[in-house]
């Protein structure tokens, strides 16, 4: 493997990791909220969160492009107040990966939170624990396997993301090009050897992540 390929793999992993860090706090909060409470309109929020999972990724990318473009409602604000450009930069890659992996994380974490028997949380309260302490010392540790499995799944999904990324970040070598985009590029350039090498690397990482995720879920049963 050449240094350019190593760089590509490193960049892809960094982007996936960054998107994970971005998605984790709101994703866990949302999952916990969905698992523990009922409120009117909950189903609408559940549907919205899951939508990127079933929508064509290109559509998710298009929506992000609208929102985060320099003239979009969020992108315009970021550009004018912080001088930050998102679209067609590495930030857009992180954003696209985050949007695409959020549903997987939230769904897995929600199930994990729901499986925590409420009796432990109730007992912790009788011992004087407030809600934050209950969450961090009881709920989260008891749900950790399911959450970890969800994180790995979301991570693997991020590494394979194509459609949303190319819409909102483009395919700029060295700047926004991730593994799947590079494979597409290689095929377009008739460089099959290169494409297959990258495909092999992708498959290897994905296998490791999903395998570990399955192991974690299996051990809980």
């Amino acid at each position: 493997m050449s240094s350019a390929e190593w760089q590509l793999v490193g960049f892809s992993l960094r982007m996936a990791l960054a998107s994970l860090l971005l998605v984790l706090p709101p994703g866990l909060a949302l999952a916990w909220w969905l698992a523990k409470f009922n409120w009117p309109g909950k189903t609408i929020l559940e549907t919205l969160v899951t939508l990127p999972l079933v929508l064509p990724p290109v559509v998710t990318g298009l929506v992000l492009l609208e929102l985060f473009g320099r003239h979009g409602p969020i992108g315009g604000w970021l550009h004018h107040t912080l001088g930050l450009d998102v679209v067609f930069t590495w930030r857009a890659v992180v954003l696209a990966l985050a949007a695409m992996s959020l549903p997987l994380l939230v769904r897995a974490a929600r199930t994990a939170f729901e499986e925590v028997d409420g009796k432990y949380e109730q007992l912790a309260r009788t011992l004087g624990a407030g809600e934050w302490r209950v969450f961090f010392t009881i709920t989260l540790p008891l749900a950790r396997r399911g959450i970890l499995a969800g994180i790995l799944l979301a991570f693997a999904r991020s590494l394979g993301e194509f459609g949303a990324t190319i819409m909102v970040a483009g395919n700029i070598p060295g700047q926004t090009m991730t593994l799947p985009l590079a494979i597409y590029q290689a095929v377009q350039a008739d460089d099959d050897t290169h494409a297959w090498l990258l495909a092999g690397i992708s498959a290897l990482i994905a296998f490791a992540a999903v395998f570990t995720s399955e192991k974690l879920l299996g051990r809980r049963k």
């Binding site: 028997d117 009796k119 432990y120 109730q122 007992l123 912790a124 309260r125 009788t126 011992l127 004087g128 624990a129 407030g130 009881i138 540790p141 008891l142």
Partner: peptide, 20 residues
């Protein structure tokens, strides 16, 4: 007054010991 402020020791039927 919520449970955490009642200063009560509670032992449920199945004990609910924190498994972790």
């Amino acid at each position: 007054l919520p449970a955490r402020a009642r200063d009560v020791g509670f032992v449920p039927q199945d004990y609910a010991l924190f498994p972790h």
